[in-house]
């Protein structure tokens, strides 16, 4: 049942694991720059961003790349659909922050997983104005995105359109409406009541 040095060396998978279909053609994993150019070509002015390169390794140096994108929210859903045509994208998580006038969501996707050294991380930023923080759901493409979308609703006050389950996940039902823990513009009176610093209270 066991093999010599299991999990090390050449992967014993069939090579068809490593091909994807794009536009009806069979393709292999793209380098990050090519993927970025393809996105640029299809989305034009609506996306901007850069490719970051990092080096890893001690004796054998290897490079890995991340694509950081900023996309208009009208085309965000389309971008995820575009990615899912190549491979079911892996969504690590959606993070977000309060950037003053707007709320910035960052969806951390990755493509080409399952192939040695080829995975490309895509960090997709979407800015939403605070008066109208609405974004399309991606649960129709990735059902697993539900929890992270629900979390963004309760933590940042984002409205996710067509979300199948809009309830809260992590915060308690006692948390007042309109208070969003990750925002910076909360009412200080409400915050004072909700947040306790136990070490200052001598506990």
């Amino acid at each position: 049942m066991r093999k010599k040095r299991a999990g090390m060396g050449e992967a014993p998978y069939k090579k068809d694991n490593e091909t994807f279909t794009y536009d009806g053609k069979k393709v292999t994993a793209y380098p990050a720059e090519k993927l970025f150019d393809m996105i640029k070509e299809d989305f034009g002015e609506d996306v901007e961003g850069e490719v970051k390169t990092f080096t890893a390794g001690v004796k054998k140096k290897k490079e890995y790349k991340e694509i950081w994108l900023k996309v208009k929210r009208e085309r965000f859903h389309e971008l995820v659909e575009w990615m899912s045509k190549i491979q079911v994208p892996h969504l690590a998580v959606a993070s977000g922050r309060d950037a003053g006038e707007e709320i910035e969501l960052i969806y951390h996707f990755s493509l080409f997983y399952g192939i040695r050294d080829s995975e490309v991380s895509l960090c997709v930023k979407v800015s939403l104005p605070k008066e109208d923080p609405v974004i399309d759901t991606i649960t129709d493409i990735l059902p697993g995105a539900l929890i992270t979308e629900r979390e963004k609703q309760e933590m940042l006050g984002v409205k996710v359109k067509n979300i199948p389950d809009p309830r809260r996940v992590f915060t308690s039902d006692e948390l007042p409406e309109g208070y969003y823990p990750w925002r910076n513009d909360n009412d200080p009176e409400v915050e004072k009541e909700l947040v306790r610093d136990l070490s200052k209270e001598g506990l």
């Binding site: 992967a11 890893a56 390794g57 001690v58 004796k59 054998k60 140096k61 290897k62 890995y64 990755s110 080409f112 997983y113 399952g114 192939i115 040695r116 050294d117 080829s118 995975e119 991380s121």
Partner: peptide, 10 residues
């Protein structure tokens, strides 16, 4: 395997 980091790249 997908995206080796630190010493795993070796």
């Amino acid at each position: 395997y997908d995206k080796p980091y630190s010493a795993y790249a070796d």
